[in-house]
Design a protein around this nucleic acid. Structure first.
Length: 605
RNA sequence: GGAGGUGUAGCUCAGUCGGUUAGAGCGCCGCCCUGUCAAGGCGGAGGCCGCGGGUCCGAGCCCCGUCAUCUCCGCCA
């Protein structure tokens, strides 16, 4: 206490109430706004706890001449120390919009800790209208806005709750290397040249996957980490080149253990930090069910509009287009567009155009009339009355609805109908913004066909344990194999992904061979994992929810940059630090690197 | 890699059918003002209309190219 400087605050701005009237206090903060009336001047002083009004009135109180002169030079965002007396506002001058609106501080002394030059943008207004590149360039100013501070605080609280809950359950928080080795395939990786032996590179981790499994072999049993992950892929509104996952792994655990743990943890965090409705228990769907009913492995369950498989209804149809698709292994599935019969012809045409953009050959549809009959629309005349009635019933279509059909391969049918379903849901406002509809998607395929090479590629994660008995299918019907895998999906967004891991070297080797790796490649890339599995590796399972996504749910942001303190722009460029940037010639020489200039001149900077 | 949107004052934006001197609000600067809280009044400064080319008597506006940025597809778990 004796070390305290006289400019240092004794109270925080937002904490002051009528109870403190009469006290002499010192506050520190920034001038949120200044209102100079010639004689009396008001300053709204802001710190992270809120605003308090400062009155500078040389005729009415102990305000010194210096304080009055200082107040006249104060501009927006000056950093100030102010000492004064907490006073009740004059009757009628209270501000009910301010938590501290009953009182004000009559300034005796004003110290300008640091002035502020003219701002590049106004920070006492909502950030929504400001050019984002400018916000990122001056991120330190952008983050002064209370709404941005609140996002930082929510993120902090989420992490704090997660840590507390996992500590409580015996999890160890362990850091794993950032300079490491890549996992083949998957996302493009960030590379760091190795100076001591030019030509070698570290790889930044896409996730701590292998390390956390090795920690299980180590006997840690319960591991977690708030882990930075790196992927050198194209950006999206909800993707950053570096992002954060809650990475966790448990030994001697089943899928059920992981699902229960994560479900309880996420519900706890959401309920503690938001008013969102989060229905429980989370819906569970297998991958096959999800694809059949929603055409997606990450369905938005805030609304229905389930897809209707018309195969049975149309098995003897006279409509050649549908018949040909069905007899060649394709699907005919329908989706209901509530009230869609009222759409203008141009809007219906737009649906057809969009379907084609999504990959379908077209969109067939009929309209349901007031009597519940499918009397109009392009396919109405090609289907029998019995067929139409059965489809109307199966889709629960009502008078005034449009029923659209996609007839194509199962993959294309799913993809297009998923898009249409989301489009309809969005247009009709079916998704309640205040609800977080979570579901577990389980039992993903182990392999899927690689259309380019004709070989097999992993569908989920090459370390995932196939379902019991499914290894028997690896030579006969690998496409039918399912694994002990699970994704947590919320409002159509993939939130977490995990699996029971393979802990047996023979199974892991068989899977890798099926993926087309020869024994030499397996040894080079996964030798250390297989060797670890040969040393008494325990059964283990894990998962990794996206932390940025969690915060986006809390803040209702659709843009991941809003919930990261210092994010990067679209190309991975950081306009605040000006990174990436060129390095010195000697640094390149040390690394044994030579830059080949792009033929067509310079970009940027 | 592809598609679409945007680019005009420090910020957010308007700018008609291509027409002579490019506007508004906020911010900034100056003066006035004793109760405001988005303070108010008066005055002022501030523009490579992203950049390059073209069409035209004439381009912020039309055409071509290019750069930046945002969103989506591809990609990415």
């Amino acid at each position: 206490m004796g070390n305290k400087k006289d400019w240092q605050r004794t109270v925080e701005c937002g904490a002051l109430r009528s109870a403190q009237v009469g006290e002499t206090v010192t506050v520190n903060g920034w001038a949120n706004s200044v209102r100079d009336h010639g004689g009396v001047t008001f300053i709204d002083l802001r710190d992270r706890t809120g605003l308090v009004q400062i009155v500078v009135d040389p005729t009415r109180n102990a305000t010194s001449e210096e304080a009055h002169l200082a107040a006249q030079t104060v501009r927006s965002e000056f950093c100030l120390s102010i000492r004064g007396t907490v006073s009740a506002r004059v009757p009628g001058a209270e501000n009910p919009n301010l938590a501290t609106g009953e009182i004000e501080i009559k300034a005796a002394r004003i110290e300008i800790l640091n002035p502020c030059r003219t701002l590049p943008f106004q920070i006492d207004q909502d950030q929504a209208g400001t050019n984002e590149e400018l916000r990122l360039k001056y991120r330190y100013l952008d983050l002064r806005r209370p709404s941005m501070y609140e996002k930082l605080r929510l993120r902090h609280e989420a992490v704090r709750l997660i840590r507390a809950a996992l500590y409580e359950q015996g999890f160890l928080e362990i850091e794993t290397p950032i300079l490491t080795k890549g996992t083949p395939e998957g996302a493009r990786e960030y590379l760091v040249p190795y100076r001591l032996q030019p030509g070698l590179f570290y790889v930044l981790p896409q996730a701590p996957q292998q390390f956390k499994q090795l920690l299980m072999v180590s006997g840690v049993e319960r591991y977690f980490q708030i882990a930075k992950c790196f992927r050198d892929e194209a950006q999206r509104a909800d993707r950053q080149p570096e992002f954060t996952q809650l990475d966790l792994e448990m030994s001697f655990a089943t899928q059920e253990d992981i699902l229960n743990l994560v479900e309880a943890l996420m519900v706890q965090v959401i309920e503690a930090l938001s008013e969102k409705q989060i229905p429980q228990p989370f819906v569970r769907l297998t991958y096959d069910e999800a694809m059949a009913r929603y055409g997606s492995d990450k369905p938005d369950l805030r609304f229905g509009l389930e897809l209707v498989d018309c195969a049975h209804i149309l098995q003897n149809t006279g409509f050649a287009v549908f018949q040909n698709i069905l007899s060649s292994g394709g699907q005919v599935k329908a989706i209901r567009y509530p009230g869609g019969a009222k759409l203008a012809r141009s809007q219906m045409d737009e649906l057809v155009t969009l379907s084609k953009e999504f990959g379908a050959k077209g969109l067939a549809y009929f309209l349901v009339d007031d009597e519940g009959n499918a009397s109009r629309g392009p396919v109405a005349k090609f289907l029998s009355n019995e067929e139409k009635a059965a489809i109307v019933a199966a889709a629960s279509a009502e008078p005034g609805d449009l029923v659209g059909f996609i007839a194509d391969t199962p993959a294309t049918t799913a993809k297009v109908l998923d898009r249409l379903r989301r489009l309809i849901g969005e247009r009709l406002g079916l998704a309640d913004r205040n609800t977080l509809a979570c579901c577990w998607i389980t039992d993903f395929p182990v392999f899927e066909k690689d259309e380019e090479t004709g070989g097999w590629t992993y569908a989920h994660n090459p370390f995932s344990m196939p379902n019991e008995g499914h290894m028997a299918l690896i030579d006969t019907d690998p496409e039918a194999m399912r694994a002990q895998t699970y994704d947590l999906v919320c409002n159509g967004v993939e939130w977490a992904s995990g699996s029971v891991r393979i802990h047996k070297p023979d199974i892991q080797t068989a899977i890798l061979r099926k993926l087309g790796l020869d024994d030499a490649q397996i040894e080079a890339r996964f030798g250390h994992m297989l060797q670890a599995f040969e040393h008494g590796a325990p059964p283990h399972a894990g998962i990794a929810p996206g932390l940025d996504r969690l915060v986006m749910f809390l803040t209702d942001d659709e843009n991941i940059r809003e919930v990261i303190a210092f994010p990067k722009m679209g190309g991975g460029f950081d306009p605040l630090m000006n990174a990436p940037s060129p390095i010195e010639a000697y640094q390149l020489a040390e690394l044994g690197l030579q830059i080949t200039p792009k033929p067509d001149g310079e970009k940027k900077v």
